[in-house]
Simulated assay, not measured.
Amino acid sequence: MHGPVMSGWLLMALCSATGAYCLLRTRGETGERRRTARAEALMGFGMAAMAVPAAVMTPPAWGWAVYAVLFGAASLRALWFSRRSSHHVHHLVGSAAMVYMAVAMAPGIGGAPGGHAGHGGSAPAGGIPVLTGLLLAYYAAYVLHSGARLIPVAATAGDVAGESAGGGWAARPELALACRLTMGIAMFAMLLTL
């Protein structure tokens, strides 16, 4: 990833923590919610791995191909499950954006050796500007929408002292939404540095 080393480390830590929480959510969920939590955990850990600053660790040339294949498979999975749930359309966009970033940062395809696009690579800096702009607009809208959904509303009669009807802390819907918001902000930041 391009940009300051400190912001790369912070982004990596944030995405790792989000991925870990989503992985914990899989233990308490079933069916569709478990699939969603798994997809979000994969996205969190994948974003964390991609956010490691290039100045600290240059991924191997084949690493970008692994990202592209992994998130290409995740895109196909999200496409399949989007028939059931509209939230999987968001996973499809996210996985496709990860494939796009991996291809744009790959040496010899979208960037120079070491994954620095725009420093001698064959593609323009940042990949395809129109596509990058569309993805930035999508994630800006997604972050604003998710953030607005986190605004507190009046407590219902079933909520008692911080416990929701769903059970423990891992099943709290506002924490899952906060993780989605975090990953949306992280994806926006990663696209900005592309």
Results as ranks from 00 to 15, higher is better:
1 M>Y: 08
7 S>D: 13
8 G>Q: 05
9 W>Q: 00
14 L>Y: 03
17 A>N: 08
17 A>W: 07
17 A>R: 07
19 G>F: 00
21 Y>K: 09
22 C>E: 09
23 L>H: 00
28 G>C: 07
30 T>L: 13
30 T>R: 15
32 E>N: 13
32 E>C: 10
33 R>T: 12
35 R>S: 08
35 R>D: 04
36 T>E: 13
36 T>K: 10
38 R>P: 01
41 A>G: 00
44 G>D: 01
45 F>D: 01
47 M>Q: 03
47 M>R: 02
48 A>H: 01
48 A>P: 00
49 A>I: 13
50 M>F: 15
50 M>I: 12
50 M>W: 14
53 P>Y: 12
55 A>Y: 11
58 T>K: 07
58 T>S: 08
59 P>N: 03
59 P>D: 03
60 P>M: 00
61 A>W: 10
64 W>K: 04
65 A>G: 13
66 V>T: 09
66 V>W: 12
68 A>G: 02
68 A>F: 01
68 A>T: 00
70 L>P: 03
72 G>T: 00
74 A>G: 06
74 A>F: 03
76 L>C: 14
77 R>Q: 13
80 W>C: 08
82 S>D: 09
86 S>L: 11
88 H>V: 05
89 V>S: 03
90 H>P: 08
92 L>M: 06
93 V>C: 06
94 G>Q: 05
97 A>Y: 03
97 A>H: 04
98 M>R: 08
98 M>K: 09
100 Y>C: 09
101 M>D: 01
101 M>T: 05
102 A>G: 06
103 V>W: 10
104 A>G: 09
104 A>H: 05
105 M>Y: 05
106 A>P: 03
108 G>L: 04
109 I>M: 06
110 G>T: 12
111 G>T: 12
112 A>R: 06
117 A>H: 15
117 A>G: 14
118 G>A: 10
124 P>A: 11
126 G>E: 03
127 G>A: 09
127 G>M: 06
128 I>V: 15
131 L>H: 11
131 L>C: 12
131 L>E: 12
132 T>P: 03
133 G>Q: 12
134 L>R: 13
136 L>I: 14
138 Y>S: 03
138 Y>Q: 04
140 A>M: 10
141 A>V: 14
142 Y>G: 10
143 V>K: 08
144 L>P: 04
145 H>N: 15
146 S>L: 15
146 S>G: 14
147 G>V: 10
148 A>M: 13
148 A>K: 14
149 R>D: 04
149 R>F: 03
151 I>V: 09
151 I>R: 05
151 I>G: 01
152 P>K: 00
153 V>M: 08
154 A>T: 01
158 G>H: 05
160 V>R: 02
167 G>Y: 04
167 G>H: 02
167 G>I: 05
172 R>A: 12
173 P>E: 11
175 L>M: 06
178 A>R: 05
179 C>A: 15
183 M>S: 04
183 M>L: 13
184 G>L: 01
184 G>H: 00
188 F>L: 09
188 F>C: 05
188 F>P: 02
189 A>D: 11
190 M>Y: 11
190 M>P: 07
192 L>A: 07
194 L>D: 02
